[in-house]
Design a protein around this nucleic acid. Structure first.
Ligand SMILES: [Mn+2]
Ligand SMILES: [Mn+2]
Ligand SMILES: [Zn+2]
Ligand SMILES: [Zn+2]
Lengths: 139, 139
DNA sequence: TGTCAAAAGAGAATCATTCTCTTTTATAAA
DNA sequence: TTTATAAAAGAGAATGATTCTCTTTTGACA
């Protein structure tokens, strides 16, 4: 996504357009493996050495609030962020912190149909994600 | 699970049987809604007022290591624990921190068959859980 | 019963995240 | 354009869940 487009999205969400916000958005999108705040800050500082930690956290909160990024659920203490907005699933490595996206339209349809028919009593489903835990082969 | 049985399980896992460990196990099992360390400590102190915070954390780590409890993935800073060992899914409230179990054998079979046939390239699946986000109706 | 490695306890330390306060800036009105 | 101003950024302190360190206690086994 180019800078101009990011600006437009920020504006549309009612967020002031600042260089810091553009940098944070670019970082999360570029570091496309569900980065921590720490790795986002590290990445941004390569080209913007003085950005404040607090700013990054505040921007990430604002983005989460507005649905511009999502938090990824983990069992760890450090939050992770995701710029991929379309609902998708995650492959979690059972040995490392690696998390990869898993998109599968066929699976989504199966789940959608299953829950449309079956439902869950006393619960209104808004989103369904799979956490697929295992080991990455190769790489 | 009665005390004697907990003792047996601890022994089988190679863990020394201590009153603290039994208390922690009982707390996690009794507080069956994926409690935080804080709520576990609070619960235990009602009958065991002097247990140390560090002990509870260390016991929870040991239990996690040995597979006696599981950590539950969330988007929050506080870890949550689960004494239900059989693989199951979770209903997450999108407004509160409530997390409930969702067991569904039929669904498990569908998923099992789906992934047995389709597989995921370069990934060996060990476990699949659904995070079902939405709203609890009533209660 | 004595031995001893493991566990518990107390409290300090850690560190990811949040907060507070000041300065800067994006935005829009004049 | 300049100006006003609320919002955002920055610096650094504070917070709080969790971990660590060190000492004391204890469960397990001989
Ligand atoms: Mn914290
Ligand atoms: Mn923390
Ligand atoms: Zn993702
Ligand atoms: Zn559960």
């Amino acid at each position: 996504m180019k800078t101009e487009e990011i600006s437009r999205v920020l504006f549309e969400k009612g967020l002031k357009v600042t260089p810091q916000r553009i940098a944070v958005y670019e970082a999360v999108a570029r570091l496309n493996n569900h980065p921590t705040a720490e790795s986002i800050i590290k990445y941004i500082r390569k080209t913007y050495p003085n950005i404040s930690t607090a700013t990054v956290y505040k921007v990430l909160d604002a983005f989460t609030e507005k649905g511009l990024v999502n938090r990824v659920k983990t069992e760890k203490d450090m939050m992770r962020y995701d710029a991929v907005l379309e609902s998708h699933h995650h492959l979690y490595c059972s040995e490392t912190d690696r998390i990869e996206d898993y998109h599968d339209e066929q699976l989504d349809n199966i789940l959608k149909n299953y829950f449309e028919e079956k439902g869950i009593s006393d619960f209104k489903v808004e989103d369904i994600k799979l956490q697929i835990v295992g080991k990455f082969l190769k790489s």
